[in-house]
Amino acid sequence: MSESTIKKTYTCIICPNGCDIEAEIKDGEILSITGHTCPKGEAYVHQELTAPTRTIAPSVLVTGGELPLASVRLTKPIPKDMIFPVMDEIKKLTITAPVCEGTVVLEKVCGLDSEVIITKNVKAK
């Protein structure tokens, strides 16, 4: 192993198996990778190494509903450092009941390739 090669351990977050993955990395390139039990693990390590992404699943305010809020989630992961800017956009939203699961409430949030969708039906009061 040359001096610039580093060994790094990752816990894959793609599924609940949470594989412990060991990767040998040199100059930002993966030399070898072990411990993953599916191809998603390798893709995850590659993503973590280059540009880590995450999803978030908060809620938006609802007026006139049987509940004061409706849960939302992102349709695609976003860069990790965009989590709080995206949260700020989601917090600005107020929607009116009735609200239906699957409805898009923000397209291309913060210019990213991800949508904010409703995940809970909220009936009007």
Binding site: A57, P58, S71, R73, E101, T119, K120, N121
Partner: peptide, 25 residues
Amino acid sequence: LRQCIHDGFGLSRFGKSLSGPEYAQ
């Protein structure tokens, strides 16, 4: 599930990451 609004549900059953309310629905 109604209050578990985070995602990660249904990966083995539906092959995608749903929130709790979606899984229940």
